[in-house]
């Protein structure tokens, strides 16, 4: 187990593994998103309260889930990096941050576009919306701090600590709809017992969520490969690949 762990941690092996996995995951991702979109827009019925407007759920909820999921990946990788000095963990955390920020932005934007017709307002300073906005600022802070410190290894350690401190915001976002009286509706999927959403609406949502997750994985792997090429530019394996055009 530890040996396997160590081999994966080698940047060269990670580069190769990502190269093999990416096309398969990309095809699967495209398929899931296509079927999810089709079922969400054409097959699923209109909501009895919200009419057609609820279809925003198919981009809003997956984006919001990704905003938190990616943050948890960053925090997990930061812990790995702080404890075991795994270089690959730092790289995965680094390249995940802009993707996470992008999905957080999307969650806020699509939420605003959904809030206007349903709540009558683009924005409200309630617990769910505010804590999600704070998440966006944490992502920005994470990226700004990394680029502000010249020494890469100092930067890596500083942002890893920042990422771990910021984890406290994740349960706040998740439970905000229960702890406070918010405008935002409570969770429909992750609550204990049966989800309060009909199966014909739930299936496309899960397909989209899985598609978004795979999109993140593929994009993260591609970005990690870019960083590996840069960081390993002086090694013989990168030079070999460059001279043979096998990139």
């Amino acid at each position: 187990m530890f040996r396997w762990f160590h081999r994966l941690a080698s940047l060269r092996n990670f580069y190769r593994l990502a190269e093999i996995l990416m096309p398969w995951l990309a095809v699967l991702c495209a398929g899931l998103l296509a079927v999810g979109l089709y079922r969400g827009l054409f097959v699923a019925p209109a909501d009895y309260e919200q009419g057609e407007s609820y279809r925003i759920i198919y981009v809003h909820v997956p984006s919001a889930w990704m905003s938190m999921f990616i943050y948890m990946v960053i925090a997990f990788c930061s812990a790995l990096f702080l404890v075991w000095k795994m270089k690959i963990a730092d790289i995965v955390a680094e390249v995940s941050a802009p993707i996470g920020a992008a999905f957080t932005f999307l969650a806020l934007l699509t939420g605003s576009l959904w809030g206007k017709p349903m709540w009558g307002t683009w924005w409200e300073w309630d617990a769910r919306l505010t804590s999600e906005l704070i998440l966006l600022f944490i992502y920005f802070g994470y990226m700004a701090l990394r680029s502000a410190i010249d020494n890469p290894s100092t930067a890596a350690r500083a942002v890893a600590i920042l990422a771990l401190v910021g984890v406290v915001n994740i349960p706040i976002i998740h439970y905000s709809v229960e702890w406070w009286n918010t405008l935002h509706q409570p969770a429909s999927i992750t609550k204990i017992g049966k989800p309060s959403i009909h199966i014909s609406m739930l299936i496309p949502l899960l397909l989209m969520a899985l598609g978004f997750t795979l999109f993140y994985v593929v994009n993260m792997l591609a970005r990690a490969r870019n960083v590996i090429l840069q960081r390993e530019a002086k090694t013989s394996w990168v030079r070999e690949r460059v001279s043979e055009g096998r990139l």
Partner: peptide, 14 residues
């Protein structure tokens, strides 16, 4: 159902 100014920008932005 009249919600196009909200639904389509959401999908387009994504």
């Amino acid at each position: 159902g009249g919600y196009w100014p909200y639904v389509w920008p959401s999908f387009a932005a994504t």
